[in-house]
Design a protein around this nucleic acid. Structure first.
Lengths: 266, 266
DNA sequence: TATCATTTGTTCGTATGTATC
DNA sequence: CGATACATACGAACAAATGAT
């Protein structure tokens, strides 16, 4: 057992209350689905002020252990279990230029618009401030109801080389890949994954439970010969509802990996 | 004394204040590194109570826009940029049975212990309540200071087949793979990724900035012939500091994947 | 349908502790 | 040391949602 440097907090009552209740949840004294004692009850139970209890419960909420509902109470959530929906991130190739991508159902028709590339997607495409076609979809898993936001970004520089992309940008992703392959390009794919706390609009659109992070995946499609990025898929999934699944295929090359370390661009 | 600014009330005053300040940050009126006006100033600026301002600032903190420090003030963080450290998740094979895995530096010597498999790792290994050897490491990226927690779980069922694993469980991961391969097993790898709000101890151990999610990756090593899971690597990375990078290699097989959908186990 | 008790959400006030400069 | 700023904690009151009567 390694010496664990325990950081002693200068006693904060609300943290102590939160830790106590959290332990009670882990010990099973409060079962998932149960209601916690009401704020008034906890004020009496622990002999502290209402504000202290509220801060403690807020702590439990941001820890993802409970969820509060006005007029009803504070519900204990099931802790530790993996999210139900598994998002397959593999790509299969049935024939030359024919790509298979596991997909979720679409909630609505895709929304096509013209945007300027900025932020992470622009940086990864190496096309900051350049124009692109943006195709937005809301995906969902019928069996669990989990929602995800999908965006395809097609830089205008790519449509210049492969004009057919601009004709039907809202086609299936596999079709876009097919068109790129038919233009004589050899495709390689890289996924870049990060996570953050969702914005309020994302929280509403994807029905994200309280305090659950958002996982964001950028799939960059590049040309193998020139290493030039051609296309970007952005997928936003609520971490509480989705896992990502990657089959890791060993590469035979002796790991000729350039140490490409991204520097903070803003 | 700052000028007094009027503010509309859509729903909750503290949300309105938070939205206003968030917009000011996005519009560049508050630059990254700047200090927000003090709580007392904001009370005067917006004509609201101290509690309302505190709730608004708390909102901004959980949104990841600012960070508060006692005695100093509330600092505006730089938003939108991708985290600096890129964690490569590829596996290369230089020769038969010789595996290459990109790795970060180790902070300390590995800690070996005996545990009972439970939670997500146990479920993914299909070995709930079975015994296993656990090897814990703290990794870090010297160039950015980012820390990550790595755990190797070796089920006793696997050491029964490959006894050498139990001899030096704290060897390099590649060495463990090598021993499995020498035992006549054909290895396949799958990564399963999720994210959640970190626990306080994780927050302290990994130096996670306020309200940043934790990304958790499970790499399951299985035998290709029997599809039996042999080994699990668990990697916890702070999302604010790390991205995960996956090269997606298309599989030639026509996606003969069983739709294994996990159900909530607790 | 309407009323009512319960429970959380929001807002105000005040006071004290503690870290930073 | 003092001034400033955030953190914690007590109090009170009303609003809004919920569920049962």
């Amino acid at each position: 057992m390694p010496a664990r440097e325990h950081i002693e907090r200068p006693t904060a009552m609300y943290r102590a209350v939160a830790a106590r209740v959290a332990q009670d949840i882990r010990d099973g004294r409060y079962q998932p689905g149960d209601l916690l004692p009401s704020e008034a009850d906890m004020v009496a139970m622990y002999g502290v002020g209402k504000h202290t209890v509220r801060s403690a419960v807020a702590e439990l909420r941001t820890m993802g252990l409970v969820e509060s509902r006005q007029g009803k109470g504070t519900i204990v959530l099931g802790g530790g279990a993996l999210p139900a929906t598994v998002v397959e991130r593999s790509i299969s190739r049935t024939a030359k230029g024919i790509w298979g991508v596991p997909q979720m159902e679409q909630a609505d028709a895709p929304a096509v618009s013209r945007t300027t590339l900025d932020g992470p997607a622009g940086a990864l495409l190496d096309q900051v401030d350049q124009d692109a076609i943006s195709v937005d979809r809301v995906l969902y898993d019928p069996s669990t109801g989990a929602r995800a936001a999908h965006r395809t970004l097609i830089p205008m520089a790519t449509t210049a080389d492969v004009p057919s992309l601009a004709q039907t940008p809202d086609a299936e992703i596999t079709e876009l890949y097919h068109q790129l392959a038919q233009a004589g390009l050899t495709l390689t794919f890289t996924d870049r994954i990060t996570a953050r706390t969702p914005y309020p609009d994302e929280q509403a659109a994807l029905r994200i439970p309280d305090a659950s992070p958002l996982m964001i995946t950028y799939r960059i499609t590049s040309d193998a010969d020139t290493a030039r990025p051609l296309l970007c898929e952005e997928l936003k999934t609520p971490a509480a509802l989705c896992q990502l699944d990657y089959p890791v295929t060993p590469t035979r090359a002796p790991a000729a990996r350039a140490p490409r370390r991204r520097t903070r661009s803003a």
